[in-house]
């Protein structure tokens, strides 16, 4: 389809940026997470918990100094793409996704990343983190923009997530209890690799609330609050509840290990209140870039995924 300017964001550029995002994500942990864990380490008074937190902070620095991945479980590489409504991609989305797959395979060998992706039944491993539905790419859209934003995320984790169909009668207490249940399940023995950012998806359908919980945990920075004051209050309350659990880093007694709690909501069935909770570990590997139509690339740490448009309500 011919366009007004004839300009496209090139597939080669997408591939190059996707590689660079994988590299940055694997090695350099975003500042909001570092500061949060450092603050916890400084405040902690229990010896064991303090020892663990200080080693985590130390490890961030070793990764920076040596330019080596900060965790050997380099996770499952995945991408979030926010596409401006006026953006044009060379070769369309098929080429876009091919570039991401090629960049991920190259990143696996060259950074290197651990080839974690295997066939779920045969356990076959291409040794490149690419396979069926892998890496996944999630999309959202932005009106009036001609850029594409990509976020690479290396998602660790066999533990630290759960889903529950609650009902309106269970109320906010039901959410509080479920939140504590997931902490009880996964903070003991440090299975969530806490300190963690807890994402809570409320409403929608089962798949929507799971998706929102993961995005809330992974794509909002520490200290960010939901624009709805009632939800923001609940976020504050859940951070406090996490502290009061006294389950700290590795599950040792401490000031708790919730860096932040982020809630996202979606309109749901009138009879239900599905809830999903997701723990994102302190090895939060994430990097974002905005690619403009003229080829300019801006790297940054905050994905700014939850825009007003993404949270739009009703018909407007």
């Amino acid at each position: 389809m011919p366009t007004a300017t004839g300009a496209f964001i090139g597939a080669d550029l997408i591939r190059e940026v996707a590689f660079e995002l994988n590299r940055r994500a694997a090695i350099h942990i975003p500042g909001d997470v570092r500061q949060s864990v450092r603050g916890m380490a400084e405040r902690e008074t229990e010896r064991l918990s303090k020892f663990v937190l200080l080693e985590i902070v130390n490890n961030y620095e070793v990764a920076d100094e040596d330019l080596r991945p900060m965790c050997a479980d380099t996770g499952l590489p995945r991408f979030y793409a926010k596409v401006g409504n006026e953006a044009r991609l060379e070769g369309g989305f098929v080429a876009f996704e091919r570039s991401i797959r090629e960049a991920t395979a190259r990143a696996t060998t060259e950074i290197p990343l651990r080839p974690n992706r295997v066939h779920p039944i045969t356990r076959y491993d291409y040794n490149n983190n690419v396979g069926i539905h892998a890496p996944s790419v999630d999309y959202s859209w932005e009106p009036g923009a001609d850029w594409v934003e990509m976020t690479a995320f290396h998602k660790g984790g066999l533990f630290g997530g759960d889903y529950r169909m609650l009902f309106p009668g269970d109320g906010i207490d039901g959410i509080r209890r479920f939140y504590l249940d997931v902490i009880s399940e996964f903070f003991k023995r440090g299975l969530s690799c806490q300190p963690a950012i807890v994402g809570i998806g409320i409403g929608g359908t089962k798949d929507t609330c799971v998706k929102l919980a993961k995005e809330a945990a992974c794509l909002r920075v520490v200290g960010d609050r939901n624009p709805d004051p009632q939800i923001a209050d609940l976020e504050d309350e859940l951070v406090e509840l996490g502290k009061r659990s006294t389950l700290g880093a590795m599950g040792f007694k401490g000031e708790g290990a919730v860096m932040d709690a982020h809630i996202e909501v979606a309109y749901t069935h009138t009879g239900g209140m599905p809830v999903s909770i997701h723990h994102q570990c302190f090895a939060l590997r994430r990097s974002t870039a905005r690619i403009h139509l003229d080829g300019e690339v801006e790297y940054r740490e905050d994905p700014r995924w939850f825009t007003d448009y993404y949270r739009r309500d009703s018909v407007s």
């Binding site: 080693e55 130390n58 961030y60 070793v62 080839p115 040794n127 302190f282 090895a283």
Partner: peptide, 27 residues
């Protein structure tokens, strides 16, 4: 410790002496 302090542990590895069953089991 942690459990994700992989860079510190990586620094403690001097070299790979051998790898066994690489082909059969994958990296």
């Amino acid at each position: 410790v942690g459990y994700g302090i992989g860079a510190q542990y990586g620094r403690g590895v001097q070299r790979v002496e051998a790898v066994h069953w690489l082909k059969e089991l994958g990296i």
